[in-house]
Simulated scan of single mutants.
Amino acid sequence: MSDLRLAELDADNLPAVIQIPPAVGEKAYVAPVAYSIAEAYVTPTAWPRVILDGDAVVGFVMANWDPDNEIPAFRGGIWRLNIADDAKGRGVGRFAVEEVAAEARRRGYDEITVLWNPAPDGPEGFYLRVGFQKTGELFGETIGTRRV
């Protein structure tokens, strides 16, 4: 993990990014990247980014910037975070969260949110370790909020 950076999704990195788990139909607590890309295509406020380590695709993060959304948890924050299996545990997820927080600050946000499944083997521990605090529930998921 020497050269982490975010890049816009493009024709060159698309084949690698859609291979990041979970695969369509695989049981997981986050949607497959292909689903997220389709959602970004029809959601003008979505902000999909590929996470690169040098030239290697190691993850995908999608934020949403919609300050007027009627649901406060959807005004600004992380919608999806997918990390390649061989990149897990190397700080890639933390890097992605920090990059979303930096983008939020650039856009004038004071906080970001994320929703996660409260299952025992879900991502709650990760989100709490990177600074989110539980602030409620929505659609059966936990809302996490982090000051930026």
Rank of each mutant, 00 (worst) to 15 (best):
E111W: 07
R49W: 01
A40R: 07
R106D: 12
F132M: 09
M1W: 08
P44H: 06
L6M: 14
K27L: 02
P118M: 00
E124A: 13
D86Q: 09
P22V: 06
V42Y: 12
A46M: 00
G136Q: 13
G108F: 07
N69S: 13
P72I: 03
G122C: 08
P15A: 03
V114E: 02
V58E: 03
P21K: 03
A63M: 02
R5K: 14
G131A: 07
A96S: 02
L9Y: 12
D12E: 15
P44K: 04
G136T: 13
P48D: 08
G108S: 10
D10T: 05
G89H: 01
L52M: 14
V92P: 03
R146T: 12
P21G: 10
T43S: 05
L128H: 09
Y35F: 11
T145V: 13
A28F: 10
P44S: 10
V42P: 05
P118K: 01
D66F: 06
A63C: 01
V97I: 14
A104C: 09
D53W: 13
Y29M: 01
F95G: 00
E103G: 00
E98M: 11
D110S: 08
G108M: 04
I78Q: 05
A23P: 06
D66W: 09
D68P: 03
L115M: 10
I37Y: 05
W116G: 02
D86F: 14
R146A: 09
L138A: 07
A31H: 12
N117T: 12
P44W: 01
D66P: 02
F95P: 05
A7L: 02
T43F: 04
E98K: 12
Y35M: 09
W116Q: 04
I112A: 06
F139L: 15
A11I: 10
A63S: 05
Y127E: 00
V33L: 04
R5W: 10
R147K: 15
V33Y: 01
E137T: 15
L14S: 03
E8R: 06
D12I: 13
G93N: 04
I112C: 02
R105M: 02
W47Q: 10
M62V: 10
T113M: 05
V61M: 00
T135F: 12
A101C: 15
R94F: 11
T145Y: 10
E8F: 14
G93V: 06
G122Q: 06
D85I: 00
R107F: 01
A28D: 11
D85F: 05
A73V: 14
L9K: 08
L14T: 08
K88T: 13
P72H: 05
R75H: 04
M1R: 11
V97A: 08
P120Y: 07
A7G: 09
E103P: 01
G136F: 14
A23K: 15
